Simulated scan of single mutants.
Amino acid sequence: MPDLILHHYPMSPFAEKARLMLGHKGFSWQSVTIPSVMPKPDVLALTGGYRRTPLLQVGADIYCDTALICDVLEHRQPTPPLYPEHQKGVARVLAQWADSTLFWAAMGYALSPKGAAALFAKQAPEVGQAFAADRAAMRTGMVNLRAGDATAALRSYLRRLSTMVEEQPYLLGQAPCVADFAAYHPLWFIRVINPAMAGILEATPHVTEWLDRMAAIGHGTSSKITSTDAIAVAAAAQPAPLADDAFQDEHGIDLGSRVTVAAEVFGQEPTEGILRAATRTRYTLERTDARAGRLHVHFPRIGYVLREVRA
């Protein structure tokens, strides 16, 4: 099978989620380090507009959003599972909460004025300014939690997580699942990337023990390649044949139509292309790039908006 190529950068929380899932599955994978802020010309060559981190590339197929990346990894190697038998629905719902509500509370706390000052204390002022400006642009239209509200919410969420791991090693039982990886990465950001703010974890020792268990999973085996190399891989490949999944039309938009797909919130830059699939779980757009060639760009349905491009 084609190699897995993860496009990411070290301090990205969602990239840490993907890296740890790759380790959980025991994959060997190729690593492309991308910029943390715009411009990202090599990313856009692959996605056509989407700029959130990480991306998973498999030949000429580009998978956006870690929720979809979870499904791709599970399909490629079902064991050990990310979705526990008899708890698949609970695991997905808990993961969605962690990737959204828990994540934004953690970021509101970790990137508060005090947290941002600590995070960028050893870097030139323009680095922190560029990061703040970039993320402000990505949050256009979002309601942001104030630092005090985020802190109060995070303390409550930590207590709730603590009750889940007091008598079992992982959130839903004896083995980690998608919910653990989703809840782990925002707390990893606080603990590892901005440790000056990690004191909030001291009141929930069961959570820190769970974090230790998750960290021990590791990232599997990776090798570095450049973004230029990754684009060349895409250009030399063709998108994989699409699975024969039923077309699920919720919009009155036919397959073969020119459309855009964009995130509902945070990083709403659209990707435009030809709609090649709309299944119960994902959209697939075909697009062509001068450097990367013909691509299929895949998005999960949940959290994304499909629109027809009208002449």
Rank of each mutant, 00 (worst) to 15 (best):
E209L: 15
R135I: 01
A230C: 14
Q77T: 00
K17V: 02
P270H: 10
A292C: 06
P169Y: 04
I253H: 08
Q174A: 13
G141V: 07
Q96C: 08
F14P: 06
W29H: 10
W210A: 02
I274W: 04
V259G: 09
P54M: 07
R307C: 12
V261Y: 05
D289I: 13
L171E: 12
T53L: 08
A216T: 13
T101K: 13
M1R: 01
A290H: 14
Y170F: 15
M164W: 07
T228H: 11
L285E: 05
E202L: 01
V233F: 02
D229N: 07
L275I: 13
R291W: 03
G267D: 10
L242G: 13
G49Q: 09
T228M: 09
R92M: 13
Y109E: 02
P35I: 11
F266H: 11
M1L: 13
M138A: 14
F120Y: 13
V297T: 09
P10S: 01
F131S: 03
A262N: 12
P241D: 11
T279I: 15
I200K: 05
T279N: 10
S31T: 07
R135Y: 01
S31P: 02
A106N: 01
G49S: 09
E167Q: 12
I69H: 00
R146E: 15
Y63L: 10
L6F: 07
A124N: 08
P35M: 12
H75G: 14
G108A: 03
E269P: 00
L242T: 13
T284C: 15
V178L: 08
E126I: 14
T33W: 01
A45P: 10
L172E: 06
R159L: 11
F27Q: 09
Q174L: 10
R291F: 05
Y109A: 03
K114V: 02
R282Q: 15
D245G: 12
I302W: 13
E16V: 12
M138L: 14
A183Q: 10
D134T: 01
L275R: 07
P41Q: 12
V43K: 03
Q30H: 08
L44P: 00
G115T: 00
P81T: 15
G108P: 00
M164L: 15
G220F: 00
V37I: 11
S223I: 06
D245S: 14
R155L: 05
A232V: 00
A45D: 06
D149S: 11
D134M: 02
G141I: 10
A234Q: 01
A262D: 13
H298I: 07
S112L: 00
Q96A: 14
M107S: 10
G252I: 07
R294S: 04
